[in-house]
Nucleic acid binder design. Structure first.
Length: 611
RNA sequence: GGUCCGGUAGCUCAGCUGGAUAGAGCAACAGCCUUCUAAGCUGUGGGUCUCGGGUUCGAAUCCCGACCGGAUCACCA
């Protein structure tokens, strides 16, 4: 039972005994005592004031008195400030808590709930490399999956690759016309970037043609439809749909280039998938589902042959499912993908990590899946996150303002390396005396650079739009990933010096109990705060799961690191002469390191042993 | 226009299931390395929580209404 649960019971009992009030647990409002007051945890007594018919301060006084008398030593004291009752919890309780936390290898994790959650994220198009928007998506998706796993779900991470359609035909066409047979091998360029270049090239040539047509007297709308390049691209798409061997072969070849590029980016970013679906394999399934729905009367056909769903009774309008020429749209494909997924896995909850610009789409998808009889349809979660904006607005590929994922990661790791070299060159810095190989320092720079990037993105509330300014580099000081990583590295350094590194980790726990420290040890206030912070962790993990919010974990990891740094500054660990205190501090440090590592792993951020 | 989301320090963001004097980081300024890693610690300055009503012991937080910003409402994905 947690401290809050125990106290809640006791407060309910106190209200009953003192005022004959049947209090509900919701009326018992407990909060952390503000630092400027004496005490550990505070009861807000206002909810009892009316029924008690006494002044708030007096009610606080009386409840405090009662609790001290009836808590069997748990509550060591109290003070009442107006309607706030500040309770002092006996120190042995915290020491015991620390020992329990340290002994629990699964601290913060919920037991398995036996249910399966599928998390879709990333979902790239195969015509251009990943950019900053995908970075946010990938980091959120991966972290959400880890967080839900920690909350007891069996999670399947999935990706739907939009590998067919007019966009890839544009790249293919441009490559055929202007590519001179270039390949990733011949150019030394990542495949996704190579394809992206041809997508841009297509757009450039296409615009040129439009301009020429307009100059020749055509209006722009018509020119956009009549430009030879776009007609060729459309013809190519048609040949693709007709299974033309030549077009299919080129398509397969160029998509392979892109996948190789994506794989490299994903690997570097540290994200992965358990199952990948391709739109080229799912869109036909979608069509047949729509046709089934048509047969069962769920949908209807207009005279021009197009197929629609009427969503008016759900407060929406009509939605197109198949074009008049019989080809499928975005929605059709998502229905097909859902069907295949449901065949492949016993999905209890389906989560789509997709930007908030597609909220309408998922609202419709939910209704359609439900109508088609998919059990998870109604309950599907569109994890809708905000856009990444640049100082002058959205990223636009045509204006060249796209922040490339690979470039960004390069830059972050370079910056980290530079800072590392600068620090280790400083004669006052311990790093100079460390013997760290070039290999290890590169690995540190990789972890720190990526950690800075990931934390920067994950710490903001996913629902909100966020700003990224390419002119300003991402911080490595303050409320950042490296700050937390640094805290971890310092603890590991201390533990190494104490002979407690690596597998010998549990030594700390043993020496601690052998030392026989169990009574009122005279905990330092910094030690107390740290233990209380550690006690919050399971609730934080649960909250992050409920809210689908890695940001909640970021805030926690930062607060934990702050608390530790403050403790580290005030309290000597290795040089503490009192062996009991020393052992307690070692155990505390070790537990903090483990918790930091765990929280960071749920964010997909690695922590270095040294930095 | 309909719907949804947001507006908190110069900047980037917490806090929002109502609780004590609204918090961090960056930037600025001032201190702290003979002591476990100074990517750290301590301090100073900086606010009409967009505005106006309401609900109540109490509102940045909940409700209503303005204003500002964004998204969306395609035979695009």
């Amino acid at each position: 039972m947690t401290l809050e649960q125990i106290l809640t019971q006791q407060v309910v009992a106190a209200a009953q005994a003192l005022y004959d009030i049947q209090a509900t647990p919701q009326q018992v409002q407990l909060q952390k005592t503000r630092p400027e007051f004496e005490g550990d945890i505070t009861l807000v007594v206002f909810p009892f004031v009316k029924a008690a018919r006494k002044a708030p301060a007096q009610v606080a006084q009386e409840i405090g008195e009662w609790l001290v008398a009836n808590s069997q030593g748990l509550i060591a004291g109290y003070n009442a400030v107006q309607g706030f009752l500040n309770l002092k919890i006996a120190q042995h309780f915290f020491i015991q808590q620390l020992q329990e936390i340290a002994a629990d290898a699964n601290y913060g994790r919920q037991p398995e709930n036996g249910k399966l959650m599928m998390v879709e994220y990333s979902s790239p198009n195969t015509n251009k490399p990943l950019h900053l928007g995908h970075v946010r998506n990938n980091l959120l998706g991966y972290s959400i999956a880890k967080i839900q796993e920690a909350n007891g779900w069996r999670v399947v991470k999935t990706n739907i690759v939009n590998d067919r359609g007019i966009h890839i035909c544009k790249s293919m066409l441009a490559w055929l016309k202007f590519g001179n047979g270039e390949t990733p091998e011949s150019t030394g360029k990542k495949g996704d970037h190579l394809i992206g270049d041809y997508y841009v090239r297509f757009d450039k040539e296409y615009r040129k043609q439009i301009a020429e047509l307009v100059a020749g007297g055509m209006d722009e709308e018509t020119a956009k439809k009549e430009a030879p390049l776009i007609k060729e691209a459309q013809a190519m798409l048609l040949r693709w749909e007709q299974n033309d061997p030549e077009v299919r072969a080129l398509w397969a070849r160029m998509n392979e280039w892109v996948y190789a590029g994506f794989d490299e980016t994903y690997r570097r970013m540290g994200v992965s998938f358990d199952k990948i679906y391709y739109e080229s394999n799912t869109y036909l399934e979608g069509k047949s589902e729509v046709e089934k729905g048509l047969a069962s009367g769920q949908f209807y056909r207009r005279p021009d042959g197009s197929v629609w769903a009427n969503l008016e009774k759900d407060g929406l309008d009509e939605k197109l499912l198949l074009r008049s020429d019989g080809t499928s749209v975005y929605m059709t494909q998502d229905i097909g993908t859902a069907k295949l997924r449901y065949q492949d896995y016993p999905i209890d909850k389906m989560v789509y990590v997709v930007g908030n610009e597609q909220e309408y789409h998922f609202k419709v998808l939910s209704i359609l899946l439900d109508r088609l009889g998919f059990p998870f349809g109604k309950e599907l979660v569109h994890f809708s996150y905000g856009m990444v904006e640049l100082p002058n607005g959205k990223m636009k590929s045509r204006e060249g303002t796209v922040v490339d994922a690979d470039d960004l990661m390069d830059k972050m790791v370079e910056d980290a390396k530079e800072i590392y070299l600068q620090k280790s060159g400083d004669s006052n810095n311990i790093k100079q005396s460390q013997t760290i190989s070039n290999e290890e320092s590169n690995e540190i720079a990789r972890k720190v650079g990526l950690g800075a990037l990931k934390y920067f993105i994950l710490k903001v509330d996913p629902r909100k739009n966020m700003l990224f300014n390419p002119e300003e580099s991402i911080d490595f000081n303050g409320n950042t990933g490296p700050f937390i990583q640094y805290t971890y590295a310092r603890i590991r350094s201390v533990l190494r010096k104490a002979g407690l590194s690596g597998e010998a980790g549990l030594l700390a726990e043993r020496s601690f109990s052998e030392s026989g420290l169990s009574g009122e040890a005279g905990l330092d206030s910094k030690e107390l705060s740290l233990i209380q912070r550690l006690m919050e962790y399971p609730a934080v993990v649960r909250q992050a799961g409920q809210d689908f919010s890695p940001a909640v974990l970021c805030n926690y990891a930062y607060a934990l690191a702050c608390d530790f740094n403050s403790f580290y500054h005030d309290c000597s660990i290795l040089n503490e002469p009192d062996q009991q205190k020393r052992a307690l501090r070692l155990l505390l440090s070790q537990t903090v390191a483990r918790t930091i590592c765990d929280a960071m792993s749920l964010l997909g951020i690695e922590v270095p042993e040294r930095m």
